[in-house]
Design a protein around this nucleic acid. Structure first.
Length: 420
RNA sequence: GGAGGGGUGCCCGAGAGGCUAAAGGGGGCGGACUGUAAAUCCGCUGGCGCACGCCUACGUUGGUUCGAAUCCAACCCCCUCCA
């Protein structure tokens, strides 16, 4: 990992705000970059590999960075890694990933592409797939043209490589090449679209610096790199992982209600930082919220949750999630919030009677039937707000209240079941 | 190339023929307390209509045994020392 953030007083609007919000970890040549940003609109990119069909909170800092760039009148470019995904980035990973099939990558690309719409849809944004040039690249051609500019000595010193070696984990030659291709991407984007800045997580520093070097050597042009800090919660946990899986940014993977809940449950100590990073709220407003203490922090958490959810799912969905939360957790909790995530189960199934543990698993409140059983055994499962005592208690139409059944796993996880 | 040591569940790590679905910790989930927070305390933590039982799991493959994470063989990978 890079040692320390670069302390530099930025003067361009974009970088100043990025810095104030805590989005900047380090940059190559901060002065030069700052000057370029002040001179006029700059095109900057961040790459996203297609390892899954959607993106989760782990990528949110990058997305917010592009959004901020766009808001300041610059030109965001989203590089989709249709080509590099076939290699696999070793950065920050102890083990090689399994190789993805071409169809899988194609499907993932389409899914990821959609994630950006709510965040960047308001302005200009360019999407580029590096398969466009990487697929056509010949091996000998690449070696001759790019190879001379990389020394193995140097490559071995980069964290992505070094850590894998130190941790006794194999690094395949395939992965070893990743940094070269990412550098090639930067140069290609510079040549094709005038991109002069690559941003990314701090684990990308080595790859980014390589690209900057390559462009300088072969094109004798000045381009820059900028990284965002690696985010952990105040208690030190990696961000965005829950038992049910990652905190996804799209509704098909994680209901807006649950997304809202994720932010609502932020630790106190993280609230000001998250407000700056993950919302567009003005900094002076955030300063006011950050000053709240004790139970009042909850007001700030609600603001955070609603603002963050609005960015990913739209203002309406965010408001609905907030309303559902009020109905579910508030003083006047009337039981079933109408906007809780709803699961449809076949009416016939309900007519025949479903074992409670099975229903919990089907509703997504437990990862397996066994987990559902344990949940009920432990007294954490409720049906229409009444604690379930028996795992296999049959659930039938008789349990419908106003057409739905409310299931709860613990205080925080709720689902409505509707026959259909 | 030679000699030692090692690869265990989501992670770290103990176990050295049956009492082992595998100690302990971390993480996660649930409960209590709270402010839908943190800290703390308690419980749960492979799958299966599951008190029985069956299946899967201790690098891989094969073997010894009534019985193997534990013994043997070959192979793969990692570490240390020597060359």
């Amino acid at each position: 990992m890079p040692e320390s953030p670069v302390e530099y007083e930025y003067r361009s609007d974009f970088l100043r705000e990025a810095q104030a919000r805590g989005l900047i970890f380090q940059a190559t040549d901060p002065e030069g970059l700052d000057a370029a940003c002040r001179a006029g609109p700059i095109a900057a990119y961040i790459g996203f590999d297609a390892t899954a069909a959607s993106l989760h909170v782990g990528s949110l800092v990058q997305i917010m960075m592009l959004r901020l760039l766009q808001r300041h009148g610059h030109r965001p470019v989203v590089l989709l890694g249709g080509g590099t995904t076939r290699i696999g980035d070793p950065s920050g990973k102890d083990e090689s990933r399994r190789m993805l099939a071409a169809e899988e990558i194609a499907a993932n690309l389409a899914g990821i592409r959609r994630v950006f719409d709510p965040f960047l849809g308001a302005g200009e944004v360019r999407f580029v797939d590096n398969a466009e040039w990487l697929d056509a690249l010949g091996y000998i051609e690449l070696l001759r043209e790019i190879g001379p500019h990389f020394t193995v000595n140097r490559m071995l010193t980069f964290d992505s490589v070094r850590l894998r070696l130190e941790r006794e984990q194999p690094l395949s030659f395939l992965e070893f090449n990743y940094m070269i291709l990412q550098s090639y991407d930067f140069r290609e984007l510079f040549r094709r679209h005038g991109v002069r800045l690559q941003m990314g997580g701090s684990d990308q520093w080595g790859n980014i610096v390589s690209g900057v070097d390559l462009v300088r050597r072969t094109d004798r042009a000045e381009v820059w790199g900028l990284t965002t800090p690696l985010l952990t919660t105040a208690s030190g946990a990696k961000m965005g992982k829950t038992a049910q899986g990652a905190v996804w940014l799209t509704a098909d993977r994680l209901a807006p209600f649950d997304y809202w809940q994720f932010w609502r449950n932020t630790e106190d100590a993280d609230v000001p930082r998250f407000l700056r990073l993950f919302t567009d709220l003005p900094l002076d407003e955030i300063a006011r919220l950050a000053a709240l203490e004790g139970a009042e922090v909850n007001d700030a958490k609600r603001m955070l949750a609603t603002a963050a959810t609005a960015l990913a799912h739209g203002a309406a969905a965010a408001a609905a999630a907030e309303a559902a939360a009020r109905a579910t957790f508030g003083e006047d909790a009337c039981g079933a919030g109408a906007d809780l995530p709803t699961v449809i189960i076949p009416a016939a199934e309900l007519a025949a009677g479903v074992a409670a543990f099975r229903l919990f698993a089907e509703a997504g409140l437990a990862a397996s039937l066994g987990e559902a059983r344990r949940l009920i055994r432990g007294g954490g499962a409720r049906l229409n707000d009444a604690v379930l005592g028996e795992e296999a208690r049959p659930v039938t139409e008789a349990d419908l209240r106003a057409g739905v059944i409310k299931l709860s796993a613990g205080r925080k996880h709720h689902r409505l079941v509707r026959p259909g």
